[in-house]
Write a protein that binds this DNA or RNA. Structure first.
Lengths: 347, 347
DNA sequence: TTGAAAGCGCTAACAA
DNA sequence: TTGTTAGCGCTTTCAA
């Protein structure tokens, strides 16, 4: 049943100081001489003392975590819905640890989310103990690092954050494998020798977009398939080019590397009554795709565990807050392929 | 920040009894009249009182949970390894809640696991507060229900438990969809018109086995494929028949509905140098399959979240023990298809 | 810079 | 059958 747990009191006794002093040492608070702190921390290490979370939670005040993400609406609705749901679900369970969440469902799109961060920094810096958000641009990173400097633990979703040594954890999906997985599946499903592959790759400038699409492309090419590439986000962007390809070329399969384009292409195929003969592999899972599975237009999607990303972020914040665990390793989640038989579970 | 939490004390005051009495009412302990209990429980419901886990853990004694499962060895190694790992991983985090685990990695195979339960019942009944195990036969169910009668919460992995009203939760995988998923993928990958499908279906007597295999078969047949069926578990059982089919029939694809047969058929195909032209869909993920992915013998597996099943079981027990939550709904996990691009993540 | 002490909300043991 | 009470290990406030 494991050895008896070390308590604060024991540390206090063996170092000859009071409980309060040990506490100050452990939490890096002021009002303690550097020398005593070192002496105490040494003992803490030696005995492998761990804070008892139950006792800590019982006594300490509430902690507040702010979540700043674009609202799941319009263009962003597919992508952020899963994230939001996972976060909200997991956040419920955090009440018992006196960790409360303040959700900011921003009306700003991803590219301008830094405005929201700016507001939070100015208006509520004093009250927050943790932050969950996304970082997709230099501009955002600046604000992230400001929060970081104030000692606030930060979890970044689907993001790349360059600064090392910061108490910032990223959670993301393996985009490289996502691309390869899409290609691997598509290769199984292809029938004709001479048909071409239409690829809707989003924006090349967005790093994750590019990695995802590039690996799909590379893999398909190495398997001997010819790719037709269409850039852009959403129906307005892609419809013209897509139409042309669908009419003029022999398209045997389509790959859409993001949620919005997956939805758009399904709509377009349905209107043109072309779905059945073309193998369609999309990205993400959301209710709006359901009819296209049923009608046989959509064949599979690459799912990126948005829900799990949200859950994971919340649990990570909890680790930080309750046990002071500050490991900054990025968490990488695997992609998974969903088809008609099992996609419903992931809605 | 949600409304202030209701405390025991408040319940005690508003019902005009003492703390101890409220406690007795909530936990169904003796030494309290049915009338007061009802009155108190009514107030608990009305105010939506929830036990404060932190305070509870701090004060209460340690809880002990026994896990009884076949050891991951020999025939059973593929199947139980993931389960064991998930359980052990999750169990680590339970120390902070003073929930300690006692692992019994039984040398008995699944069919005789009841012997182990018998031993636990005789030798340690008094010390245990929870049980995680598997039930696959009438004989086992008898023991399960004995524990249940003693008020011990039980989580059953990959099991069907008939008795209603018991505090027994089952966690299992959707076998029906597993079968359909395997068929759906296989259909994408098939090339020839006239080739046949070899199906290694395990034992028909085992319920989960049968459901899984039946749905695969039904789906494939409805897609117009001819099935060759081989019963049995492990290489000794199936090699004779498989060999014959592989030599005499035009086999274009193979489906194995369990871990052992997946491994066996991969070995056999490799030895016969037949892997490359046959589409192979197996079940479960484990290290030993890795080389067959690499060599192109194994194309995909249906993964059943063993790891997650273990984690879930532990969390469920935690719910029971710390918050008295006794919902007996079965938890059904989805199957997922893994291929070369992403299986490694699930090892 | 340090120590002392109150008490978080609950459980369990004992008393009535 | 019910009430009372002593802490669990920690955080925080106040006093020294």
């Amino acid at each position: 049943m494991t050895q008896k747990k070390v308590t604060l009191k024991e540390i206090a006794q063996s170092t000859g100081v009071s409980l309060g002093t040990v506490h100050r040492a452990i939490y890096g608070k002021g009002g303690i001489s550097e020398e005593t702190r070192q002496r105490i921390l040494e003992e803490v290490r030696r005995t492998n003392y761990q804070v008892d979370e139950a006792a800590s939670v019982l006594k300490r005040g509430a902690k507040k975590v702010v979540v700043v993400l674009p609202k799941a609406q319009k263009e962003d609705r597919f992508y952020f819905r899963g994230l939001w749901r996972g976060i909200r679900k997991a956040a419920q369970g955090m009440e018992q640890y006196k960790i409360y969440f303040h959700f900011i469902e921003s009306d700003y799109p991803l590219t301008q989310i830094w405005r929201e961060l700016e507001w939070v920094y100015d208006e509520m810096l004093e009250e927050i103990d943790g932050l969950i958000t996304v970082a997709d641009s230099e501009r955002t990173n600046v604000w992230i690092s400001r929060f970081d400097k104030r000692g606030i633990p930060i979890i970044l979703l689907s993001s790349y954050y360059p600064e090392k040594g910061a108490a910032v954890s990223c959670i993301k999906v393996d985009h490289e494998r996502s691309g390869r997985l899409a290609a691997e599946f598509m290769h199984y499903g292809l029938r004709q020798r001479d048909g071409k592959i239409l690829m809707l790759c989003g924006y090349d400038q967005i790093y994750s977009n590019r990695v995802y699409a590039e690996h799909f492309e590379k893999e398909m090419q190495s398997l001997g398939h010819e790719i037709l590439k269409v850039e852009g986000f959403g129906r307005e962007d892609i419809e013209g080019e897509c139409s042309r390809y669908l009419e003029e070329e022999q398209v045997q399969a389509i790959f859409a590397s993001n949620a919005r384009n997956t939805f758009s292409i399904c709509q377009m195929l349905e209107e043109r009554k072309m779905g059945k003969d073309i193998l369609v592999v999309g990205t993400d899972v959301f209710e709006e795709l359901q009819p296209y599975y049923e009608k046989g237009i959509l064949n599979a999607v690459i799912f990126q565990y948005h829900w799990e990303q949200g859950v994971y972020a919340v649990n990570k914040i909890h680790e930080y807050l309750s046990r002071g665990i500050r490991n900054q390793e990025d968490k990488i989640l695997p992609p998974v392929l969903l088809m008609k038989s099992n996609y419903e579970y992931f809605l």
